[in-house]
């Protein structure tokens, strides 16, 4: 189950655009280097946008795991 040592987890399923993106950025701001953020999403556009934008910020995307029907968990390692 616990694939990664997740430090913080946010569930933004069903939220309207761009709340998932904004919540991800907010969560990352309060985290320390090396910690892992788990973002739970259910909108395909978020799956395409969020990894690209956090990579731009310098963080590492460990995995985009499909966890259900149109549901994914993005694991982000803070730089």
């Amino acid at each position: 189950m616990a694939k990664y040592q997740v430090t913080k987890s946010i569930d933004v399923r069903g939220e309207v655009c761009p709340v998932p993106d904004v919540e991800t950025k907010r969560a990352l701001k309060g985290m320390k280097s090396g910690e892992i953020l788990e973002v739970w999403i259910d909108y395909p556009m978020s799956k395409e946008r969020i990894p690209e934008s956090v990579k731009q910020m310098g963080h590492e995307v460990l995995e985009i795991e499909e966890v259900g029907k149109s549901e994914w968990k993005i694991y982000i390692k803070v730089k």
Partner: peptide, 19 residues
Amino acid sequence: ASKEFKFRMPKDPKTYLQV
């Protein structure tokens, strides 16, 4: 067709008021 259909709902009902 691309398995992207899903009934999506926000957790906070206030979101409905906003939209």
